[in-house]
Design a protein around this nucleic acid. Structure first.
Lengths: 199, 199, 199, 199
DNA sequence: GCATAAACGAGACGGTACGTCTGGTCTTATA
DNA sequence: TATAAGACCAGACGTACCGTCTCGTTTATGC
C-alpha cells in the first residue's frame, strides 16, 4: 500500500514530530512573525534541508502542525433540523477557536494566504474549502427542507456564517459564544418553518 | 494655530507623495510580498531614513498611501430606511473593492495586521473600527425605527455585514455584487416592517 | 586692517571653543574611532553646518583642538652643544606625549593622514614638517660645529630621531624616557667631538 | 591530527582567494579609505556574511591579503657580521616597500591599528612584532660579537631601525634606498669592530 | 555481505532586505 | 550673514534568514 519500495533510508517520523512540535512552541512563544525555518531547525535539532525537503514553506509546516495536533476537521452534523445542525457546527467551531493556540495559528495562516499565492491555493483546498463544503451540505439539506429564509441562496448563507466567524477571529477578536450562535440560528432559520416541521 | 514655529527644514511634501506613489506602484506590479522599504526608497528617489522617520513599517506606508489616494472613508448614508442605507453602503464598498488595487491592498493590510501586533492596533483604529462605527450608526437608527429582525442585536448585524464582505475578499475572492447586496438587505430587514412604516 | 568689514553676523568664538572642547572630551572618552561630526555638534550644542563651514574634516577639528589647547609647537633649543639641544628637544617631546590625551590624538591624526590625502597635506604642513624643521635647524648647527658622526647626513639624523619617537608612539607604545634620550644622544654625537670643541 | 572531522560543508578556498584578490584590487584602485566590505563582497561575487564569518574587520582581510600574496615575512640573515646582516635586512625591506601596493597597504594597516584596538593587537602579533623579533635576533648576535656601538641597548637599535623605516613610510614617504641603508650600517656598527674581528 | 541509494545533522555558500548610522547638503526661523 | 535645528539623499554598516549546496554519517533495499 504505502509501500516504501525505493531503497534508501526512510523518512524519520521522529524528526517530523520534532519539527511540528517546535513550530507550535515557537509560534506560541513569539508569534508567527518571529517564526523562521532557521529557528524551527535549531529548536528541533534538525537540518534545514530536512524541512525544505518535506514542506514548501513555513506556513505549510504550521498548517501541518495544527492539523496533526488539533481537530480542525469540519463536522457535518445531521440532526434533522437546520437550527440544530448549525448550532452544532458553531459549537464545534467555538471549541476549536477558544484554544488560543489554534486561533492564533488560523489567523496567521489566513494572513499568509493573502501574501503567498502558492500557499493560498493549498490552504484553500486543504482547509478552507473543505470546511465550506461541510457546511454547504448542511445548508443544502436545509434548503431542500425549506428551512431557509426567503430571498437568500444557500451559498450566501454559508458565506454569511463563515464571514461572521472569520471577521470575529481576524478583526474584533471576540470569541464566538452561544449568544452569537443563537442569533445566527434565529436569523438564518425561516420563522415558523422548522418549528412547524418538528411538530 | 498649529504653526510650525520650530526652526529647521520642513517636511518635504514632495518626498511624501513620491513615497506613497511608489508604494502603490510597487504593490500593483509585484504584490505586497515583494514590497520592501529598500524598493520604495529606490523607486521614489528618497533616502531610506526618510521613510523610517515618518512611518513605523511598510504596512503603515501602504495604509497611508491607500488612504491618501483612494476614498476608503466610510459613508454614513441616511436615506430614511435601513434597506436603502444598507444598499448604499454596500454599493460604495463594492465600488471601492472592484478596483483590484484597493482590494489587493486591503487584503495585504488585513494580513499584516494578523502578523504585526503594532500595526494591528493602528489598522483597527485608523481604518477598521472607523468603518465599523459608520455602519454601526446606520444600524442603530434602524433599531430605533424597529427595522431590525427579531432576536438579533445591532452589533451582530454589523459583524454579519462586514464579515460577509471580508470573507468574500479574503477567502473566496468573489466580488460583492448587487445580488449579494439584495440578499443581505432582504435578510437583515424585518419583513413588512419598513413597508408598513412607509405606508 | 583685515578687520571684519563684511556685513552679517560675526563668527561665534563661543561656538568655536565649544566645538574644540567637545571634540577633545569625546576623543578622551571613547577614542578617535567613535568621534563623529554628529557627536561633536550634539555635545557642543552647535549645528552641524557650523562645523562643516570652518573645518574640512573631523581630523582637522581635532588637530585644531589639540593645537589650541596643548603646546605642541616644536621648540628650537640652542644650548651650545648638540647633545644638550637634543636632550632638551627629547625632554619636551617626552612631556608632551606623557599626557595620554595628546599621545592618543597624535596617533589618531597620523593614522588619519594615511587614509585621507587631503588631511595628510595639512597635517604635514601644519604640524609634522614644522617640527621637523625645528629639529633640522638644531642638527644643522651640529653639523656646522662638526658634532655629527661620520657618514651620516643631517637629514638622516632627523629621520632617525623622529622615527624612533613615532615608532615608540605608534607601535610599541612605550614612553620615551630619559634612558632612550641618553642613548640617542650617545649614538648621534661624535665621540669626543663636542667635548673637544667645548674645551 | 588537525583533521577536519566536523560535519558540514568545508570552507571554500575559491571564495577565500576571490575575497583576498578583490581586496587588493580595490585598495590599489581607490585606496584604503574607499575599501568597504560591501565592495569586496560585490567584486568577489561573495556574500557579505562569508567575509564576516572569517575576518573580524576589513583591515584583517587586507592584512591576510597582503600576507598571502606578498612576501612580507621578515628574513633573519646570518652573514657573519652585523653590517652585512643589517644591509640584507634593509634591502629586503626596501624591495618590499618599493611595490607601491605593499607600501600603501602597510600605511593603511598601521593607521587602522591606531584606530581599532582589536586590530591593533592582531596586527602587532601577526606582523609587527614578528618582524621586530627577526631583527632582534640579528641585533642580539651583533651584541654577542661586540659589534654594537657603546651605550646603546639592542632594543634601542631595533627601535631605531624600524622607527626610521616607518617614519619614512608614513611621514616623508621617501623610499629607503641604499644610501640610507649605508648610513644606518655606518652609524650602528662600532667603528673598526667587525673589521677587526674578521681579520 | 556489499554495493546502491536516500534521508539525516551540520554548516558554509551567494543573496536580499533589514533597521541604524554617519556624511555632507539644504532649508527654515532667529539673532 | 552666521547660527541652531533639523529634514534630506546617499550609502556602508553588521545582522538575520532565505533557499541551495556540500559534507560525512546513518539506515534501508536488493544484488
Amino acid at each position: 500500500m504505502t509501500d516504501q519500495c525505493r531503497p534508501g533510508r526512510k523518512r524519520s517520523e521522529q524528526s517530523r514530530l520534532a519539527i511540528l512540535t517546535a513550530t507550535l512552541e515557537l509560534v506560541e512563544e513569539a508569534g508567527y512573525g518571529a517564526l523562521t525555518i532557521e529557528g524551527i531547525a535549531a529548536r528541533s535539532g534538525v537540518g534545514k534541508q530536512t524541512i525544505y525537503r518535506w514542506w514548501p514553506s513555513k506556513a505549510d509546516v504550521l498548517l501541518d502542525a495544527i492539523a496533526t495536533t488539533a481537530d480542525i476537521r469540519a463536522p457535518e452534523p445531521d440532526e434533522g433540523s437546520f437550527g440544530a445542525d448549525l448550532a452544532l457546527f458553531l459549537e464545534h467551531t467555538y471549541e476549536m477557536s477558544t484554544e488560543s493556540r489554534v486561533a492564533d495559528t488560523l489567523r496567521a495562516l489566513m494572513a499568509q494566504a493573502q501574501i503567498d499565492p502558492g500557499f493560498r491555493k493549498r490552504f484553500c483546498e486543504d482547509f478552507l474549502f473543505r470546511r465550506r463544503d461541510a457546511l454547504g451540505k448542511v445548508v443544502e439539506r436545509a434548503r431542500e427542507r425549506g428551512e431557509l429564509p426567503a430571498g437568500v441562496t444557500p451559498d450566501t448563507v454559508t458565506d454569511l456564517v463563515f464571514g461572521t466567524l472569520w471577521y470575529r477571529l481576524l478583526a474584533t477578536r471576540e470569541p464566538i459564544g452561544q449568544e452569537l450562535a443563537a442569533e445566527l440560528v434565529a436569523l438564518l432559520t425561516r420563522q415558523g418553518a422548522s418549528n412547524a416541521e418538528i411538530r
